[in-house]
Nucleic acid binder design. Structure first.
Length: 494
RNA sequence: GGCGCGGUACCCAAGUGGCUAAGGGAGAGGUCUGCAAAACCUUUAUGCGUCGGUUCGAUUCCGACCCGCGCCUCCA
């Protein structure tokens, strides 16, 4: 059994085997740091994170590299508008992106930045020109000659053969030999950021950074290259053209693309008012774990409809898993193991795993876990769960969470950071009461809460229910839920 | 216009040429419970966009149509 993964290049689901036994070398196209990351960006990065974690859980050592695009037209434009240097401008958004990724429990890959590889890129362009794949235009820009690369279009399944003669040529593209030729290197326009290099002054085109940095980090041919579906063309098609022209070898074995999401049933766009950054959602009071759970629960190749209702549902689902985990953790169970539960743990893990192996079918994998939760809860209710069973079920839950990463309950700290950020950015008006209430619950110390609960328990023991209910209500108002179980009192922050 | 993906219950969302069409949420009823929370049980698609076709049999394959979405010059 092994992971079967859809490969955009072949258009088929294939068995994934890395080139070197236990090592996977993968590259993901990272963010262009010109603004805060939105929920669509994070769908892709969560999908890649799930892939990365699953590969690691499968026993591979994963070399995972991600680029930061820190120079492009939009950055140059926005930076100038803000009166900042490109570097000052991008530093802010790169930091924000990495914080947001951490908020969503996305493990950080090895980072490489475009602006830190300018000489290598210039060299790459020079070499491509030497080999006849690139040419210099009159203004000092360099273009890739796609006519020289017969495989052009193989990733995006486009046939460019018939388009060469008689193809329309845009008036402003008079510099290019063919309208489809793409920029490797851009000559500077007045006031734009540029670098002095042996091929002249200028800045890299968009695609070149990924070819140069990925091959530098991972070799001329590597296992996996990921990104959003929009990158298939032209970005990844162009990367293939540049890289394979340079080395004469296959560039990437598996191409992995995450599908775009919809927000409230529509394409996300600023004009529709359904454009949300991660921070927007947290300020509205949604927990990072709910967001991650929702993003991860629809398989990456399917369109995901991201809705606020769905976010609420995800929160409850995560809560259900956490409740079960806590029940297993704190419950008192008799020694030993039961055959049914041992089998349940084994079967669940198997189902979970085969769901994941089936092109990362996270919905299927999740269903196995929820089945286990129901059966496990029922066994506890019936008094049939033994101590070793609890450990076995907890272990399965742990395996699930090493990939989904939603059970760890330390979110208030993350949310607080975002709250503080909102204050520093003068965005207090966007802070919801839900978030404030969650934060309030955090203000109470564990000791303070336990003190209150002790008072409540005393009142209950002396059957002074009026008093105990008052304390319960008070705690509830502060976002603390107290549960009285036959194994004792348990409480949690909501 | 070209290429591609999808339309499954109130919502989100898997899946299959024929056994009861996963799972989660929501609603209803019940069990437990001083209350609350959690949990469990029952219940909610004779039906899988529409219409044809192939087949002993289709939600699953094929065709047409309707709707949604993506790519086709830098949006994840």
């Amino acid at each position: 059994m092994a992971l079967r993964l859809y490969n955009t290049l072949s258009g088929k689901v294939e068995e994934f085997q890395p080139m070197n036994n236990n090592e996977v070398r993968m590259y993901v196209c990272g963010p262009t740091v010109y603004d805060y990351g939105h929920i669509g960006n994070f769908r892709t990065f969560v999908a890649v994170d799930v892939l990365r974690r699953f590969l690691r859980q499968s026993g591979y050592t994963v070399h995972h590299v991600m680029n930061i695009t820190d120079v492009d037209d939009k950055i140059i434009h926005n930076a100038a508008h803000a009166g900042l240097s490109v570097q000052q401008y991008t530093a802010k958004y790169e930091k924000a992106f990495l914080e947001d990724a951490a908020t969503l429990n996305i493990e950080q890959p090895i980072l490489v930045r475009a602006t830190e590889h300018i000489p290598e890129m210039a060299q790459f362009v020079a070499d491509l020109e030497k080999k006849g794949f690139a040419y210099r235009a009159e203004d000092g820009s360099y273009y890739f000659r796609i006519a020289k690369f017969p495989g052009y279009g193989k990733l995006s399944k486009k046939d460019f053969a018939g388009m060469e003669d008689g193809a329309r040529v845009d008036v402003d593209d008079y510099d290019k030999d063919n309208a489809r030729d793409f920029a490797l290197w851009k000559a500077p326009k007045p006031g734009e950021a540029s670098w002095e290099t042996p091929i002249g002054r200028g800045r890299p085109g968009w695609h070149i950074e990924c070819s140069v940095m990925s091959m530098q980090q991972l070799g001329e041919t590597f296992d996996l290259h990921a990104g959003g579906e929009d990158l298939i063309f032209p970005h990844h098609e162009n990367e293939i053209a540049q890289s394979e022209s340079m080395t004469g070898k296959p560039f990437v074995r598996f191409w992995f693309h995450a599908r775009f999401l919809l927000v409230e049933g529509e394409k996300m766009s600023k004009s529709l008012g359904n454009f949300f950054t991660l921070r927007d959602l947290v300020l509205k009071g949604h927990k990072p774990s709910s967001i991650r759970f929702l993003l991860a629960s629809v398989p990456y190749r399917n369109q995901l409809n991201f809705t606020f209702d769905g976010l609420k549902q995800a929160a409850v689902s995560v809560e259900r898993l956490r409740n079960f985990q806590s029940r297993l953790d704190t419950g008192q169970f008799p020694q030993g193991a039961s055959e049914q539960m041992t089998e349940l743990a084994r079967d669940t893990l198997k189902r979970f795993w085969s769901g994941m192996e089936d092109d990362l079918n996270t919905a299927q994998a999740q269903a196995a876990i929820f089945d286990m939760v129901r059966k496990g809860n029922a066994a506890i209710d019936a008094g049939q769960l033994k101590r070793d069973d609890a450990a076995a079920l907890l272990d399965v839950l742990e395996r699930f969470d090493q990939i989904f990463a939603v059970l760890e309950d330390d979110e208030t700290e993350k949310m607080k950071k975002i709250l503080n950020w909102a204050k520093s950015e003068k965005r207090e008006k966007d802070v919801s009461n839900t978030l404030l209430q969650t934060m309030e619950a955090q203000e109470l110390s564990d000791a303070g809460i336990e003190q209150k609960i002790a008072e409540m328990e005393n009142a209950r023991r002396s059957r002074n229910f009026q008093s105990s209910d008052a304390i319960r209500a008070e705690l509830m108002a502060a976002g603390i839920v107290v549960e009285n179980t036959k194994d004792g009192v348990r409480w949690k922050r909501k």
